[in-house]
């Protein structure tokens, strides 16, 4: 399977994703520079974390107009698998490929720590190797991860099973205390209605091999491999 990792000016988790795909999972991986206008021959695209365009104006607001995004949209429309992690998630919501928006964290701080997540939907190409309701620990590292959408959109997301990950405590309870950033409904990751595009603030690529202390994120990538 061939993964394309989209590199924007300011991406900084691109190498981590490349490493996991290539060296940990033994799959093909290739970087796609944001100036590319054609995306051909890939099975899955990763929009990695970082600070594309310095987060100027709003996170993802400028990256969504990078030339590569036209190809990314076409890839999504054609049913191609796309995962946006952290800044990648922020870019996907700005581009309209996922609903909602990621605002400044509730306490205005950059938060870098392990968080418990509940797998709300295991019936997606990204989570099929997890159990529904399973609690995993995956690190977050962001200042703008406070998920917001209007009530109607939130209800639609719930009804359609588009909320994939929610912040929770060690027992799987999605309490306000377990919510690091103020996200509505403790949302940590959502997918589109067709289930081929996922965005998540936590970093599964940072916990995909034992030497990193946890392999809780590895199955996100393994789930994608056919």
């Amino acid at each position: 399977m061939k993964f394309g990792i989209v590199v924007f000016p300011g991406s900084n988790c691109d190498h981590d994703c490349y490493h996991v795909v290539k060296n940990v999972l033994g799959q093909e991986a290739e970087y796609i520079w944001h100036k590319e206008t054609q995306i051909n021959g890939f099975d899955c695209l990763i929009l990695p974390g970082g600070f594309s365009y310095g987060d100027y104006l709003r996170t993802g607001a400028i990256a969504k107009f990078s030339p590569v995004m036209k190809g990314v949209k076409e890839f999504a429309d054609g049913g191609g698998l796309i995962i946006g992690i952290c800044n990648g998630f922020q870019i996907l919501v700005e581009a309209g490929l996922l609903p909602g928006v990621l605002m400044r964290n509730r306490d205005l701080k950059f938060i870098c720590e392990n968080r418990y997540l509940k797998v709300e939907n295991s019936d997606t190409p990204f989570t099929r190797l997890y159990n529904k309701g399973e609690v995993v620990s995956i690190p977050i590292a962001h200042a703008d991860g406070n998920y917001f959408a209007d009530d109607q959109t939130l209800k639609r997301l719930q009804d359609n099973g588009q909320i994939v990950f929610r912040y929770c405590d060690a027992d799987g309870k999605t309490t306000d205390n377990a919510n690091p950033n103020g996200s509505l409904l403790n949302v940590a990751g959502v997918c589109n209605e067709k289930r081929n595009v996922l965005g998540m603030m936590p970093h599964p690529e940072r916990c995909a091999e034992e030497i990193m202390g946890s392999i809780d994120g590895k199955r996100v990538f393994e789930s994608l491999i056919k």
Binding site: L57, R58, A61, I62, F65, E94, G100, V101, M103, F148, A149, D150
Partner: peptide, 8 residues
Amino acid sequence: KMLANTVI
């Protein structure tokens, strides 16, 4: 298109 995100 760019300067505001009309969701919020």
